[in-house]
């Protein structure tokens, strides 16, 4: 039995909005520490890993481990029906074949209830190896989203070059090229506006902007993003 109540639905709305282009069908793995999602996109180019800790819900109850197989396009449609400030309760019975979602407006004058059919999603759990990255860049997430969007006008791929005291985003295509250089800024007032480049050694790698733009949709969830790069290993965002 799972019953979890989120004080405001906006968090789950943003999460689903951020992953729905990448994840078709996947399991919400629920246990007493929270709800986890781990899924690759259909072309196996990207992996989404998410944990919603039990502490973020009130109350949170999960009697035994349960995997809820969900079609994320359906869940995204249902989440559109929730108001940002509604409190949201998700429930799944013992051998549930539906996930129940309830949205309650702040003054409880509107209660919406949806059931979405659950499906069997056989997904193996992948181990993400611990990696000591050559370069780790921390920057405002909105800025990263802006860079990915801007450079998409020039090319479908972006080269990210991390050197001492700077990170450069370069896009070159048939019509021309563009580059955006971001430099570390110390002692900023807002932590989220900080830019730091931690370098073990310089690194220069190319990535598909299609996926970076998908990842950047999660920018509304956190003010700061960390990019970790090393040769021959996936970019960690």
């Amino acid at each position: 039995m799972l019953e979890a109540r989120l004080p405001s639905a906006v968090t789950l709305k943003k999460i689903i909005d951020a992953v729905k282009e990448l994840v078709q069908d996947a399991n919400f793995d629920c246990n007493d520490s929270g709800i986890a999602l781990q899924a690759m996109d259909s072309s196996h180019v990207a992996l989404v890993a998410l944990l919603m800790r039990a502490e973020g819900f009130d109350p949170y109850r999960c009697d035994r481990n349960i995997a809820l197989g969900i079609n994320f396009a359906t869940l995204a449609k249902v989440m559109k029906c929730a108001g940002n400030d509604d409190n949201l309760t998700i429930k799944a019975g013992e051998d549930a074949d539906v996930l129940s979602l309830m949205f309650e407006s702040t003054n409880s004058d509107r209660i919406s209830e949806f059931d979405i059919k659950l499906m069997d999603v056989d997904a193996d759990h992948l181990g993400i190896p611990e990696t000591d990255y050559s370069a780790t860049i921390k920057m405002p997430s909105a800025e990263f989203q802006r860079i990915c969007r801007d450079l998409s006008v020039m090319s479908e791929t972006v080269t990210i070059e991390a050197v001492k005291d700077a990170v450069k985003f370069i896009a070159s295509g048939d019509t021309g090229s563009g580059s955006i250089t971001v430099k570390p800024n110390q002692a900023v007032d807002k932590k989220d506006m900080e830019v730091t480049v931690t370098l073990q050694e310089p690194v220069k790698l190319a990535f598909s902007l299609k996926y970076l733009n998908h990842f950047a949709k999660a920018s509304t969830l956190a003010g700061s993003v960390t990019l970790s790069l090393s040769d021959d290993v996936p970019l960690m965002i």
């Binding site: 180019v45 992948l126 190896p129 598909s208 290993v233």
Partner: peptide
């Protein structure tokens, strides 16, 4: 040219 690689071989099946 840019060649997109997939992740399949990277992660360990647990």
């Amino acid at each position: 040219g840019f060649k997109q690689v997939t992740l399949s071989s990277y992660f360990t099946r647990r």
